[in-house]
Computed example of a mutant assay.
Amino acid sequence: MRRVALVTLVVDDDYDEAVRFYTEALGFRLVEDTPRPDGSRWVVVEPSAEGQGTALLLARAKGDVQRGRVGDQTGGRVGFFLHTDDFARDHARMLAAGVTFLEQPRHESYGSVAVFQDLYGNRWDLLQPAD
């Protein structure tokens, strides 16, 4: 079996703020937070309590080029897709936690969806796929 295990998401200098956003506002689970010898941290979060999906490696930006990409890692496109089995529940919880949605929920042939921004401005779809 093969799968994409981690996707790097470049964040600003404050790891703790990133962890808070992903765990509290989005409801992800903190999998690992290990200090590294260079002063950085190996921080992994994932949306699934079962640990069966792709996780995010929250990586602190190093240098001006990486800092310039924080929040715009996909050129303004939706670059991340958070699937849910209960759109209404997760949408309401995320709104209550202060997550910024860029549109009202839509019900498309492929499912219920709404675009939101993460802490840095990266665009995500919250998506409950159609059966």
Rank of each mutant, 00 (worst) to 15 (best):
G53W: 06
W124D: 01
V65L: 07
R77F: 13
R89Q: 14
E17A: 13
A5L: 02
A92W: 04
A114W: 10
F28C: 07
L58A: 13
A114L: 05
F21W: 04
E32H: 04
N122D: 14
G111T: 13
V44K: 12
G75Q: 05
R3G: 13
R36A: 11
G39V: 13
S112R: 03
K62I: 11
E50G: 14
L26P: 04
H107A: 15
S48Q: 12
S112M: 06
K62Q: 13
L127A: 15
H91S: 11
L126V: 15
P47W: 05
D12A: 03
R41V: 12
L102Y: 02
V70G: 01
Q117G: 15
E46S: 14
L26T: 09
Y110C: 15
S112W: 05
V70T: 09
H107N: 15
R69F: 09
T8I: 08
Y15L: 08
H107V: 13
H91K: 11
Q117S: 09
A88L: 05
T84R: 02
R36P: 12
L95R: 09
V11A: 03
Q117L: 03
W124T: 06
Q66M: 05
D12H: 02
G76N: 08
F80D: 01
P47A: 14
V19Y: 00
P35Y: 14
A59K: 14
Q117V: 11
D64H: 01
A25I: 08
G111E: 11
E50W: 03
H83L: 07
V44F: 11
H83G: 12
A130G: 14
D38S: 05
D13M: 00
V11K: 00
R69S: 12
Y110I: 15
G27F: 07
S40I: 12
G51P: 09
D72I: 01
G63N: 09
T8M: 06
S40V: 10
F80S: 01
L56V: 13
G121R: 07
D14S: 09
A114N: 08
R20I: 08
N122H: 14
L58P: 15
F80N: 01
D12K: 00
F80E: 00
L58V: 10
A5F: 12
P105Y: 04
F116G: 12
V4M: 00
G51C: 08
L58N: 14
P129D: 09
A61R: 09
F28N: 03
Y120D: 06
A96G: 11
G68P: 03
Q66C: 09
T34M: 15
R3P: 05
P35T: 07
L119G: 00
G98A: 12
Y15D: 10
M94E: 02
V7C: 02
V113D: 01
G75H: 03
A88S: 01
L9P: 02
R93W: 08
G76H: 06
G121V: 07
F87T: 15
H83A: 09
E103V: 12
A88Y: 00
D125W: 07
D85L: 00
G53I: 01
W42P: 05
E24H: 06
K62P: 10
D16V: 00
